[in-house]
Design a protein around this nucleic acid. Structure first.
Length: 513
RNA sequence: GGCCUGUUCGUCUAGGGGUUAGGACGCAUCCCUUUCACGGAUGAAACACGGGUUCGAUUCCCGUACAGGCUACCA
């Protein structure tokens, strides 16, 4: 399998769904594992659904995730173009070849006629009304119309489509890499449109033609394609390409976190989490659909999270870099069943990867978060703070939410803590600590701060547990956070004294000792 | 409705004819700690159901239920 060639083939109809990103990732991992090529093909055969900006979105999303494309619309390649709309002229010949060999036919039926046919069948209690081997003989097509009539209509430029002539009774089998043998009877397949009346191929034709022409060896795609896979097998056969037909692997779908159904944007809105890789600004509106990247998720966390949604290496390890994933990936270890989307796991991965960052990276992360908040501070201090906060953050932006008291004195005090902890002892200790710090000269290391604080406690004869949280509240405004002595040390003598002072006046007013 | 696919703790999953059915997320309790977090320990928690096959089925087969997908001149 040294010449593995796979492709990711999205439609530019909107932002790439996170499930699509996973499909792209599996394709990428598989191709790199085998030293093969990864192609990107834009399937824009439905001109009514084309959304401007969608292709760029796909490119940007893949790039962020770290999926590199070997051949595609931007990098070109031996099988260019890689946009199906630009390949339009190539498809008709194959459809006509199928007609010439008796495996397809022209159909002239109007929308109304098709509708009427379906109604008629429905009234006759036919289970699934469709254009197939029995109904096609009652419609207007080159199978029912006299040859000269067909020619006349064609010459007149009448609208037509080309439909596949599905064999009457035949078992079509397909050996899916994930699901094993799938057998479908041809009588359950309808005469799918191959070439639309606007001259564009449908997915089915374009897909098979392109995959063949581009030398695709493995088709890894979502399970929603499984029902039409037998149809694709039929096309490979009729086109004479069965011996080089790619192997198929149909991936399980990503499902809603709770309840039933596949994961949708609705779930994202309800759960407050993203289902898109990066932000999508909906054209013509002010709306933005949130993406993982812009919500503060790390690229490596998303990759790891996505890879494990339906695949696992069979070991107990869970933290894998892209390189390791490539090393370990195998289609055999992809699961069969649908996977519910649990954002908690994604958060956990993010926390893990954030913690794996070097001190310098952490500092940089925190600096950019502060910058976004309009806060500037000296780098050394930020470095120290980021280390203090390291074990407490899940997202980089938590550096701000968890540590804003380093940069601004409390504007208010957590009332629950205030009412239970702020008492006469707390006031006494705060006053004494204020005085003690005031008269202190020289450096204020965490150790020194601790020493001073204990001196105060000893002098006042008060146990540490009785007042610690109150003092923390006075200095930070909240009841929880990193080691208070480190906070005091970073804040410095003057700032700490000042904060104790304002706490003493503000809190004493509102809370009775 | 028809066709296709699936079903191990709440979730992601390992496993596979005989196991105390393992791990992770989440949850709970305890320890550490001035607090919270981290960390550590412990705990609750699963083989959808019914038939077969078998000495023995969670594992194999068949049904049923449930779930998902498809059923467009959309992909």
């Amino acid at each position: 399998m040294s010449d593995v060639r796979v492709r990711f083939a999205p439609s530019p109809t909107g932002p790439l769904h996170i499930g699509g990103v996973r499909t792209a990732l599996y394709n990428y991992l598989f191709s790199k594992k085998h030293g093969g090529k990864m192609l990107l093909r834009i399937e824009d055969t439905d001109q009514t659904r084309f959304v401007p900006g969608a292709e760029n979105y796909i490119l940007e999303a893949l790039q962020w995730v770290g999926i590199t494309i070997d051949e595609g619309p931007t990098q070109g390649g031996p099988h260019a173009p890689y946009r199906q709309s630009e390949r339009k002229p190539m498809y008709r010949a194959y459809a006509e070849q199928l007609i010439a060999e008796g495996n397809a036919y022209y159909a002239f039926d109007t929308e109304e006629e098709l509708e009427a046919m379906k109604e008629r069948l429905k009234a006759a209690k036919v289970a699934s009304p469709s254009y197939n081997m029995v109904t096609r003989m009652q419609m207007n097509n080159s199978l029912t119309l006299p040859e000269d009539e067909v020619k006349r209509r064609l010459d007149n430029g009448e609208a037509y489509v080309i439909r596949l002539k599905v064999p009457r009774k035949e078992e079509i089998r397909l050996n899916d890499l994930i699901r094993g043998w799938v057998v479908v009877h041809s009588s359950t397949i309808d005469d799918k449109v191959l070439l639309k009346s606007d001259g564009m191929p449908t997915y089915h034709l374009a897909n098979i033609v392109d995959d063949h022409l581009m030398g695709i060896t493995h088709v890894i795609r979502g399970e929603e394609w499984l029902p039409s896979a037998p149809l694709h097998v039929l096309l490979y056969r009729f086109l004479g390409w069965e011996s080089t037909m790619p192997k198929f692997a149909h991936l399980p779908l990503l499902l809603k976190p709770d309840g039933n159904g596949k994961l949708s944007k609705r779930d994202a809105d309800a759960g407050g989490f993203p289902v898109f890789p990066i932000d999508w600004k909906v054209p013509g509106t002010e709306d933005t659909w949130i993406g993982f990247r812009d919500q503060g998720y790390l690229q490596e966390a998303v990759v790891n999270f996505l890879a494990f949604l339906g695949w696992n290496p069979g070991t107990q390890e869970e933290l894998f870099t892209m390189e390791q994933l490539i090393q370990e990936f195998s289609i055999e270890r992809i699961g069969k069943s649908g996977t519910k989307f649990d954002i908690n796991k994604a958060k956990w991965y993010n926390q893990q990867y954030l913690r794996l960052k070097s001190d310098a990276e952490l500092q940089q992360l925190m600096e950019s978060v502060l910058q976004a908040e309009g806060v500037s501070y000296d780098s050394t201090t930020i470095g120290a703070i980021s280390l203090l906060l390291k074990e407490r953050v899940t997202f980089a932006q938590d550096f701000w939410t968890e540590g804003k008291f380093f940069f601004q004195a409390p504007l208010s005090y957590d009332s629950a803590v205030a009412s239970s902890k702020w008492n006469s002892d707390a006031i006494q200790v705060s006053k004494a600590l204020q005085d003690k710090l005031q008269s202190h000269t020289g450096d204020l290391s965490p150790e020194t701060a601790k020493h001073l604080f204990h001196e105060v406690l000893d002098e006042q004869g008060i146990k540490i547990g009785k007042v610690m949280q109150a003092v923390r509240l006075a200095i930070t405004g909240v009841g929880a956070g990193p080691d208070l002595m480190h906070i005091i040390s970073i804040l410095g003598k003057d700032e700490t004294v000042q904060r104790l002072q304002s706490a003493l006046s503000t809190l004493s007013e509102t809370v009775k000792p």
